[in-house]
Simulated assay, not measured.
Amino acid sequence: MTQIKSFSARTLDANALKSFAHPLRLRIYELLDEHGPATATGLAALLGQNTGATSYHLRELAKHGMIEVVAGMGRGKEKYWRITPGGFSYGEANPADPEVAGALDYLLDDLVRTRGAELSRWREESATAPEEWVQASVYGRRSLRLTPEETARMRDQVFEVLERYRALSDSGEREGAGHVVVHFDVLPVGTNRS
């Protein structure tokens, strides 16, 4: 089995993959990523769920290291949750366990859906976004002729750059910083042609 090189703080194990492959947990994670720390009550209102269900799914995400309680936020028993800094990777490219493989397929399909939605949203928002953000953004695609080894080397070099900026992002709030999403995909085209 091929192991995916991880440029993240942690790699999700089989149990975490299966737990994360849940529509409500994915949506909670997206909301925390997009809006920052939130309580179970606040998330429940956004999701049209009851607080008990949201609390349960938050605890499941926390059990697998996907999110954590923000120290110093909230009053009394109120907890604010955030995404655990450092990111994560999905691990094995082709897990042998069919249940884990199904969870990975679900998560990858959701990743494709999310990327499409983010691109569409920015396409609409860019017409009225501040000029400095429009100038800083880019839609990019390159078509290259590379060997598998060259492709892996390029992928790793790009991830090394992204890792430096992830560390900067995780270092805390900075004036003028906004939520930025970077999509980076490297995939061969036509490898199954006869």
Results as ranks from 00 to 15, higher is better:
R166Y: 05
L24T: 13
R153E: 12
G178V: 14
R155D: 08
R10W: 03
E118W: 14
D105F: 14
K77W: 05
A152E: 12
I28C: 10
W133F: 13
E132G: 07
A62M: 08
L31P: 00
L111E: 12
E173L: 13
L107R: 01
Y80W: 07
E30Y: 11
E78Y: 08
R27H: 09
D170Q: 06
R174A: 13
R142A: 15
H179L: 14
V186G: 00
A53M: 14
G172M: 02
R164T: 11
E163Q: 15
F88V: 07
Y29S: 08
N94Q: 13
D97Q: 06
P188F: 03
L58M: 08
E173N: 09
A16G: 02
A38F: 00
H22G: 04
Y106T: 11
R113A: 13
Y56S: 09
I4S: 09
G52K: 05
A45V: 10
E132C: 08
H35C: 06
A40W: 01
I4A: 14
A16Y: 00
T151Q: 09
Q3H: 12
F88P: 00
R145D: 15
E30F: 11
R155L: 08
V189T: 10
A167L: 15
G140V: 06
P23Q: 10
L17I: 10
A40V: 04
T51Y: 05
D97M: 02
R153N: 10
D13P: 02
K79F: 04
P85V: 11
S194F: 13
G178E: 12
V134D: 08
Y165P: 00
V158H: 07
A96F: 05
K79W: 04
R10H: 02
E34I: 05
S171C: 02
A62Y: 01
G52C: 09
E163S: 14
W133D: 12
A9T: 07
S137Q: 05
V181R: 05
L146F: 10
A177G: 09
A16P: 00
E34T: 13
G102Y: 03
E149Y: 11
G65H: 01
V134M: 08
G178T: 13
R113D: 09
T11E: 08
T41M: 08
A177T: 09
D110S: 12
S126C: 14
D105W: 12
E175A: 11
D13W: 01
L47A: 03
D105M: 11
T41A: 15
K63H: 08
H57S: 06
R142Y: 11
A9D: 05
F7A: 11
M66E: 01
G190Q: 03
Y165L: 15
L162D: 02
A101K: 04
K63S: 05
T84H: 10
Y90R: 02
E118M: 10
A103C: 05
